[in-house]
Amino acid sequence: MARIIRFHEIGGPDVLRIEEVDVAGPGPGEVQIAVKALGLNRAEALMRAGRYIERPALPSGLGLEAAGIVAEVGEGVRGLARGDAVSVVPPISMARYPAYGEVATFPAAHVVRHPVTLDWTTAAAVWMAYLTAYGALVDIARLGPGEAAAITAASSSVGLAAIQIANRVGARPIAITRTAEKAEALIGAGAAHVVTLAEGGLDSRLAEAAGPDGVRVVFDAVGGPIVEPLAAAMAPGGLLIEYGGLSPEPTPFPLFTALSKTLTLRGYLVHEIIGDAARLEAAKAFVLDGLAAGALKPRIDKVFAFDDIVEAHRYLEAGDQVGKIVVRV
């Protein structure tokens, strides 16, 4: 028996329950880990609230990231053994492979031996943020030295990962955030410039921060009305990557700006990278190299105890964090 977090109905943080469950062992090609820490993601709050791309059967587990010790390996698994310290690449389905528990099972291809320098809290905060940012900025956009990249929701774990990755490839990250409260933290995290939405004039201030070459790449988690000023500040031939929908308002298509500048606007999910073995291996190599070099380092905002999962989800939904929320098991 192990303690597992599940929900039996769609709703707010209060629907989460810690239950004693008889957990089956790993199947062929799977690895079971004794979980030491969990990384929280907004996707989990969305699934719990019934607004995620995946609609689970109830009761359901949830969770996309974990770090811990290999407890059992399934038939056919190579390269991993009991006792290995590992972290988890998010699965395609968190209903099929939920992370929230004292014990969790994942496909072996998603279980990574991370650098020994990482503690459990940091290791649990790696893969969703860095794979998401890598997939957009490096794999798709081919961001390069000297180029300006605009990053919305910059204080999120993905936003901070994007800032670090942009710096890693020699680009200039421009952080976009709601108010000036987080500006100092974002500069400290490596942003070349910070533009706040509360000040207005997003297009002109973003264009000024980018310089004469403009913004070739926009990495946007928000959508909604800001898409129009984002597009207005972009360079001809630029690429706007939408990977979230934090805004509750409709997202307009900036038709005439897209036409005049021949812009590309595309949707993106990290599943593109995770679901392609070759692209995933390249991403893992990039992230592990950056972690080992110290160029990539997750920022932990707050750590909660496993028994405080409801409070952790309330804090997640408040959106005030700078970096990752982690739950220790």
Rank of each mutant, 00 (worst) to 15 (best):
A235K: 03
K182M: 09
A183E: 14
Y268E: 14
S260F: 02
V194P: 14
P252S: 04
V217H: 10
P212S: 06
R266C: 12
G245Y: 12
P252E: 00
S247E: 10
P225F: 04
P212N: 04
V217M: 06
V215M: 07
L263I: 05
D220L: 11
A231Y: 09
T262G: 01
I226P: 01
A221G: 02
V222R: 00
A233F: 00
S247I: 08
R205D: 03
I273W: 08
T251Y: 12
G275I: 05
G238T: 03
G190C: 11
L280W: 03
V215I: 13
G245C: 05
S247D: 10
E242W: 02
P254C: 01
V195W: 01
R279H: 10
G238W: 06
L255M: 13
A180M: 08
L259M: 09
F256T: 10
V217R: 12
V270K: 06
E272W: 13
A185I: 10
A231S: 12
P254V: 00
H193F: 11
A185W: 10
V222Q: 01
E184M: 14
A221M: 02
H271W: 09
A183M: 06
F256R: 09
L265I: 13
G224H: 08
P248A: 10
G190N: 07
G190T: 05
A235C: 08
E281H: 11
I274V: 13
A210I: 06
A192D: 14
S247R: 11
R216I: 02
G200H: 05
L269S: 15
G224C: 12
L269A: 14
A231W: 07
I226S: 02
E181V: 08
A198D: 00
Y243N: 13
R266A: 13
V227H: 05
T196P: 09
D203A: 15
F256Y: 07
G201C: 04
G237Q: 06
H193A: 15
E242Q: 12
P229W: 02
D203L: 07
A235H: 05
T264M: 05
F253K: 10
L259E: 04
V195Q: 00
H271P: 07
E184Q: 15
L265Y: 10
T264L: 13
A198W: 00
E199G: 12
G201E: 02
E272D: 10
A207Y: 12
D203Y: 03
R266F: 04
A207W: 09
M234T: 04
L186D: 15
